[in-house]
Design a protein around this nucleic acid. Sequence first.
DNA 1: GCTAAGATATTGTTCAACAATTCTCAATAG
DNA 2: CTATTGAGAATTGTTGAACAATATCTTAGC
Lengths: 221, 221
Amino acid sequence: MTMALSTAQRVAGVLRDRIEGGGLPPGTRLSEEALGRDLGVSRNTLREAFRLLIHESLVVHRLNRGVFVRVVDPADVTDIYRVRAALECAGVRAAAGAGRPLREAVTAAVEEAGRAAAGGDWQEVGSADLRFHRALAALSGSPRIDAAMDRLMAELRLAFHAMPSPRRFHEPFLARNRALAKLLADGEYARAESELTTYLDDALELILGALREREREGENA
Amino acid sequence: MTMALSTAQRVAGVLRDRIEGGGLPPGTRLSEEALGRDLGVSRNTLREAFRLLIHESLVVHRLNRGVFVRVVDPADVTDIYRVRAALECAGVRAAAGAGRPLREAVTAAVEEAGRAAAGGDWQEVGSADLRFHRALAALSGSPRIDAAMDRLMAELRLAFHAMPSPRRFHEPFLARNRALAKLLADGEYARAESELTTYLDDALELILGALREREREGENA
DNA sequence: GCTAAGATATTGTTCAACAATTCTCAATAG
DNA sequence: CTATTGAGAATTGTTGAACAATATCTTAGC
């Protein structure tokens, strides 16, 4: 029953891996001719693959100039956190009326992060953290908010590339995630919301600091 | 200085106008061959235009069946208003720290709606109303929120097609818009937010009622 | 009337050629 | 030396076609 993937989907997968693996750094132009020859597909098929990646915000398209690996600058990260604050706070406010499965997804993500941290898998801690915040926004019960969060998270993953140590970044937030989940479970929605707001501000500052750091290094190259 | 648009973008514009103008009612199938011949573009380019409209949620794509003009059902409208509540409330909360031009855009939209109502142009009242709410969300100062609101408004316009009398729908909200703008100008953010919440709930009910009405009529056809 | 098999029409995918645009870089003017 | 301009090269945009996969319609049989 497994549906075979189209050529374009396979090509998109290869490019996605290269981008997320660092083989294609942000800002790189993806030449249609060169890549098409490299991957053994026609330009048209390659462009179809590009469209999939554009939809994922992994690359951007500039008319008559081609596609480039997305560069997430500080203004983007700041904006992403602004939207996250709006959507996740909306989720927290809707927590009281949210169904059981939605609320359990929140605590489940916290527990998964804890297990991953105990095992030293900080990559997985990062994934669980994103799932936790996605679950917060999902408390609204809105498919459109879910989709928007997925797009924001994909963009954020690109910015995380700039973080030197996943552990240093994620570890402090483990306890705060747990605290947030507890406030929600106890029905302390107002306090949960204010804690979430400062939480997101703190995380934003950490990432902006790392981006500035990386930029300073880049100047000497 | 004029930036040239790609063929696909032009075609998407034509289709967008036809859809919003009612020439292509919700549910219509957009045949690749017929439309391509009609507009004088290749299937490949037409499909590219479709992708743009899919991204705007104006049409939907069903595998191996083609693209159809989006049918906005009650669940969609409910979800759209959920997201609107999240984004517009976020804007109201950010109003205190918003810049002068953003705050003035809010009052400007209210005044334009008033002038249009005085002139009896209820179509324009509707447009000004959408601008008003867009301006509320824009108080956050977030490009992504602005873009999200634009998409939501485009979807909503499809649903408005079901409203029999623009006047009956928009008139009651004129005074409420004015009241909301005043609360904001006076710094009464908490009250503005709670008024906005009930406002959106009321508007949602009106639209859902009209949709149910239209569906009942449709059964006898 | 209903079902099933085959015929037809439509969309999905890929390709190669041609058109339009941008980019490169040397020549030139200030 | 800097800025500009213009021809040529490189790259992307668009097209039409061919073939595959899927859906829809037609028809034969029960």
